[in-house]
């Protein structure tokens, strides 16, 4: 099982499993059926693609940062420099089994369009994002009256790339509007471990630091 990090490490993103991989990425990779075709949107340095490759997945990536792309390509990964907001349109319908958006949704200009494209391009969409409804964030806004900053979201409001924060409830609502079918939803605590599965939404929205959704198109 996933190794628990010491308490003072409050960043889920830096929590690493036994193989040295990010716990949240391990969780996402395990949601993908072996042998499928995957597009990882915002693939960073290609860590998730590498995890997927080990599962026999035919993985492709899109990454905005030049450094990330060049690192991926030099590792032999099929990654293109591109922007989730503009470049998903060039992919045909049903080109992939899974389209993954990992910790990137909040940085897109038009998140709803991105999700709709993902559901068009792939049979399944896997979306992970930081939950702005987490109690720490709520308390910061309530008590200090300032834009929240956490270990996971350390940037100030004026230099953050994250322009479209949402809560788990907000995301749910948008999914309903786009006609997406929710196959699975998992909320993670700050250490990257999944919260109790049968908890109600308000509980997840308060205690989940990030969430992972698996979506698919509603038939018809």
């Amino acid at each position: 099982m996933l190794a628990r990090a010491p308490r003072d490490l409050t960043m889920a993103e830096t929590v690493r499993g036994p193989g040295g991989a990010r716990v949240d990425l391990l969780l996402v990779s395990e949601m993908v059926e072996p042998g499928s075709r995957v597009l990882d949107v915002g693939c960073g340095d290609g860590e998730l693609l590498r995890l997927l490759e080990a599962r026999g997945v035919d993985g492709r990536g899109i990454e905005l940062s030049r450094e990330g792309v060049n690192e991926c390509v030099a590792k032999g990964l099929a990654v293109v420099q591109g922007d989730a907001d503009t470049d998903l349109a060039s992919y045909p319908d049903d080109a992939f089994d899974y389209v993954i958006l990992s910790q990137t949704l909040q940085a897109t200009r038009r998140p709803r369009d991105v999700i709709e494209h993902m559901l068009r391009i792939g049979r399944h969409a896997i979306v992970s994002f930081p939950n702005f409804g987490h109690w720490r964030i709520r308390l910061q806004l309530l008590f200090y009256g300032r834009m929240p900053r956490t270990a996971n979201l350390p940037e100030t409001w004026y230099d953050t790339p994250n322009i479209h924060f949402c809560t788990i409830k907000d995301f749910n609502e948008m999914c309903a509007l786009t006609g997406a079918r929710m196959e699975k939803a998992v909320a993670l605590d700050p250490w990257g471990t999944a919260l109790k599965i049968d908890a109600p939404w308000w509980f997840w929205n308060l205690f989940g630091e990030q969430a992972v959704f698996v979506l698919s198109r509603k038939p018809g």
Binding site: N70, A78, V80, Y91
Partner: peptide, 21 residues
């Protein structure tokens, strides 16, 4: 180059694309 990449994506090709600074 991006036009090439988009055309290749449309065909589902396995493509890497890097812009070097």
């Amino acid at each position: 180059s991006r036009a090439v990449v988009h055309a290749l994506n449309a065909g589902g090709a396995r493509v890497s694309f890097a812009e070097i600074e």
